[in-house]
């Protein structure tokens, strides 16, 4: 046995020299060159440095930022109303007057596009926020309380998870009565189990960590342990999951609008707009469906890019559940 061996045995080189063969790019998807490490960016400068060094985050944030600004300022700046109909102007092709054309009732697609961005972003954010809050709280309570509370809550979660998520959301929306608020409620309920299961298992894991045992041993109150020690530890996991669910919520909301249980025409919701344009797409008036879809794609890709990075930064163990 080499005394003090460990002190010099696992030094600097162990990371740089591959003891086993490695292929280039084998670090993916957590590529060191691209993934900003949490550790090296402490202090105030790190958000700016992150933006400069990480093109993926920069791209995602600028798309999201542009869409948010458009959604906030657009309705006051753009002269057309998203819902006013001008039958004389129906099915007009994109032009300077109507940059994205008009639909079958002569509504200006660009005005609807702008309003649709606001609807998608705010509804998606609401779904994620409420879902993460309720699901996280449920997981926390189940994980801390254990026993009967835990098993009842988890049976309910299992039952919710027995449905494919989108179909459950559809069912709940129908039960509550078709509309965008019901669709949001359906999405919240169908995503709650993702958070609850994840947070519960995190709470169970964290509760066994030595420092929590120590806090318990010195007599800290359970409420204080939960607030001061458990919650901060499960927060990153919750954030990662929420970030991943943002893009999903937006697509799912549009999908519910598309199949007709979400927002109803004339509400300028992107999914409903795509359905509205469906009959015209192959008769030449492609813009009615293609334009809102484009916005949807940009928004979701940006959201997913962001989620990927959030996961890289916050969760070195990888993978959000779905």
């Amino acid at each position: 046995m080499v005394g003090r061996g460990d002190r010099w045995d696992h030094r600097a080189m162990s990371g740089a020299l591959p003891d086993a063969p490695q292929r280039p790019g084998s670090q993916e998807p957590r590529d060191e060159a691209r993934a900003p490490r949490v550790g090296d960016g402490r202090g105030r400068a790190w958000p700016r440095r992150l933006l400069r060094t990480d093109r993926q985050i920069a791209a995602a944030l600028s798309i999201l930022g542009a869409l948010v600004i458009m959604a906030v300022l657009g309705p006051t700046l753009w002269r057309h109303s998203p819902t006013a109909t001008y039958l004389a102007d129906s099915l007009a092709a994109p032009s300077t007057a109507h940059p994205m054309g008009t639909d079958s009732n002569g509504r200006d697609i660009f005005a609807r596009f702008i309003r649709g961005a606001g609807i998608s972003i705010s509804a998606g954010a609401t779904v994620v926020f409420v879902g993460a809050l309720l699901g996280g709280a449920l997981g926390l309570v189940a994980g801390l309380a254990r026993g009967i509370v835990d098993s009842v809550a988890m049976r309910v979660m299992d039952a919710l998870l027995a449905f494919p998520a989108l179909i459950l959301a559809m069912a709940i929306t129908i039960g509550l009565g078709v509309g965008i608020v019901s669709a949001c409620a359906g999405l919240v309920l169908s995503t709650i189990p993702w958070y609850a299961r994840l947070i519960r298992s995190e709470v169970l894991r964290v509760s066994q960590l030595p420092f929590i045992e120590a806090a318990r041993a010195v007599g800290a109150a359970p409420g204080r342990i939960a607030r001061r020690h458990v919650v901060p530890h499960v927060m990153p996991t919750l954030l990662v999951q929420a970030a991943g669910a943002f893009g999903y919520s937006i697509v799912a909301l549009a999908a519910l609008g598309f199949i007709g249980v979400g927002a109803q025409i004339p509400t300028p919701e992107w999914g409903a707009m795509i359905t509205d344009g469906l009959p015209y797409t192959l008769t030449g008036q492609w813009w009615i469906s293609v334009c809102p879809g484009l916005g949807l794609m940009l928004l979701v890709v940006a959201a997913n890019l962001l989620a990927d990075r959030v996961r890289d930064v916050l969760d070195p163990r990888g993978g959000y559940a779905r």
Partner: peptide
């Protein structure tokens, strides 16, 4: 030798099991 002194790389070199980028 210490970790990282090249012992394992030597073994793999003898066996012809060094893979790119090595």
């Amino acid at each position: 030798g210490e970790s990282g002194s090249g012992k394992s790389a030597l073994a793999l070199s003898i066996l012809g099991l060094i893979e790119p980028p090595g």
